[in-house]
Design a binder for these strands. Structure first.
Length: 201
DNA sequence: AAGTATACCAACCGCGAGCGC
DNA sequence: GGCGCTCGCGGTTGGTATACT
């Protein structure tokens, strides 16, 4: 396994690791307020933090940034995550970009700890396996609730079939290779209206 | 009450892309 | 064009909280 470039790794001098303290948060926020969220290495140095720039960036992006929403992901947001994931796969930053106030890390965690399990259980149930625990039952019921809402109304169905088409097109890409890159770039340049459709569903 | 298993999530790691020199 | 630096992304780890036995 080739080593990553030295510049991408935290050095021995940047020894402070683990959970951030309130004091560190405050120092970081102060420096960013003055210098802006860029040049993370120098931000870390200016703040007098024994942390690498990467760590500072992550802390800012996931916790200290203004307008961050934390916890309590709503049904609507969950629904949107499911749809976007179906469409985009594990493109967490893109998905997060469509959920104001949510971070890629939070969505990734939410997916890994909640949604992926729910989906597996749903598939298990669809294959005819018994759902045994109360926890499993709750998960399946929640998935049913989301699917039911998605299937309400003809306009929803129409949009859903459009999504399916887009998703299939996106991931099948004329049968060769994992992605149609030309299509993907067009998709990423799409205006907001298509995503508003997702919100309205 | 104590030990163990599981769930959750903050933080770290490695990699690749973009940019400037 | 090559090199080094910086940034952003997605995968993974590890600590803590909670549930279960």
């Amino acid at each position: 396994m080739p080593m990553a470039p030295l510049s991408s790794r935290c050095t021995k001098n940047e020894a402070n690791r683990g959970a951030w303290t309130a004091e560190e948060d405050q120092k970081l926020a102060q420096v960013i307020e003055i210098h802006g969220p860029k040049r993370w290495k120098s931000v870390a140095a200016k703040a007098g933090l024994n942390r690498c720039g990467k760590s500072c960036r992550l802390r800012w992006m996931n916790y200290l940034r203004p307008n961050i929403k934390r916890g309590n992901i709503s049904d609507q947001e969950e629904d949107l995550i499911l749809r976007l994931h179906k469409l985009l796969g594990n493109r967490w930053s893109l998905i997060a970009g469509r959920l104001p106030g949510r971070t890629d890390n939070e969505i990734k965690n939410y997916w890994n700890s909640h949604l992926s399990k729910k989906i597996k259980l749903k598939e298990k149930q669809n294959r005819g396996f018994m759902v045994q625990s109360e926890h499993e039952k709750t998960n399946v019921m929640e998935m049913d609730h989301i699917v039911d809402r998605r299937d309400e109304g003809t306009s929803t169905r129409n949009v859903d079939s459009q999504n399916s088409f887009i998703g299939d097109d996106l991931f099948n890409s004329s049968g060769e290779g994992p992605l149609n890159l030309e299509w993907m770039s067009k998709f990423l340049e799409m205006d907001e209206s298509w995503f508003e459709l997702l919100h309205d569903m």
